[in-house]
């Protein structure tokens, strides 16, 4: 009976949340429409309805999926590489002060250098299609590294001492203490990095204009003053970024659960 009540309560809370989101989105759409009326020029500002129509036209074309797929592939490739090397570097630099001192200036430079500088340099160094991968990688790496390094350093020393006193193996210390301890920070870093990967990756595409990419479509929209297309592709990028973010939260949660399960065995 109690579980039934809890279930009902959860359903009610979910419904309330959905209603809140719906109201919030509706208000913003109304504001968008209001701005459209206020500006009154399609070439400067597209209406939400036109954008929706344009997205509906686009998603039925093979070309849309092709461009979306290649953009997604490139940016995610850079993102995953950045996340992987960010984690690897964080582990190494947490373990060795020498390595930390060695990598710190390089990562600070990467963090503070304007992304456009890197895009232009990358255009000189590599093929057009590889630029978004490289740029996403460069943006994600320092975010993951910096956050994870801090999290590893802030792992509760008293728990580590307890692990030593009870003779935990290095693998047990990793699974039972380090992973659960750094996971919330890592998850935050990974979700923050998704946005950066998309923003920088699309910017790289706009500048490098590889053949099949969303960035090239945005560039074309700008050149031919197709503002509705510009808005439509931007909405697509936002939706993709949100979708990827959800996927990452889900995947990291799954990995953490598996790690915890294996840690118990």
């Amino acid at each position: 009976m109690i579980s039934g009540m809890v279930c009902k309560l959860q359903k009610k809370q979910k419904l309330q949340k959905a209603v809140r989101i719906l109201i919030s989105v509706s208000v913003w759409l109304c504001l968008w429409q209001f701005l459209y009326f206020l500006i009154g020029k399609d070439v400067l500002f597209a209406s939400p309805l036109d954008v929706l129509k344009r997205i509906a036209e686009l998603i039925v074309t093979k070309d849309f999926w092709l461009k979306t797929f290649f953009s997604l592939l490139g940016i995610m490739e850079g993102y995953l590489l950045g996340a992987f090397f960010g984690v690897l570097l964080a582990v190494l630099t947490s373990a060795s002060k020498v390595l930390y001192s060695f990598f710190k200036p390089m990562l600070t430079v990467v963090k503070t250098t304007p992304v456009v500088s890197f895009i232009i340099l990358a255009l000189v160094w590599m093929q057009k299609s590889q630029v978004p991968v490289f740029i996403s990688f460069l943006m994600v790496l320092p975010i993951v590294w910096a956050n994870l390094t801090t999290a590893i350093r802030e792992t509760d020393a008293r728990l580590l001492e307890m692990a030593k006193a009870y003779g935990f193996t290095p693998m047990q210390i990793l699974r039972r203490i380090y992973i659960p301890s750094v996971l919330p920070t890592l998850l935050t870093a990974l979700t923050t990095a998704v946005g950066f990967a998309w923003k920088s990756g699309i910017a790289a595409e706009v500048i490098s204009t590889p053949r099949n990419s969303i960035g090239t479509q945005l560039y074309n929209a700008k050149v031919y003053l197709e503002t509705t297309d510009l808005f439509a592709w931007t909405v697509v990028v936002i939706l993709l970024s949100m979708l990827v973010e959800k996927g990452i939260v889900f995947a990291v949660g799954k990995i953490a659960k598996t790690a915890k399960r294996e840690g118990q065995s």
Binding site: G167, R176, I177, Q264
Partner: peptide, 27 residues
């Protein structure tokens, strides 16, 4: 081989009571 119980509990906050104890023995 020694056992040391600290003045503070030093339990793993993300692990259940059973997981905390089974960290040093079988379930």
């Amino acid at each position: 081989k020694y056992t040391f119980m600290f003045q503070e509990n030093r339990l793993l906050p993300w692990a259940t009571a059973l997981e905390n104890v089974s960290a040093v023995c079988n379930v």
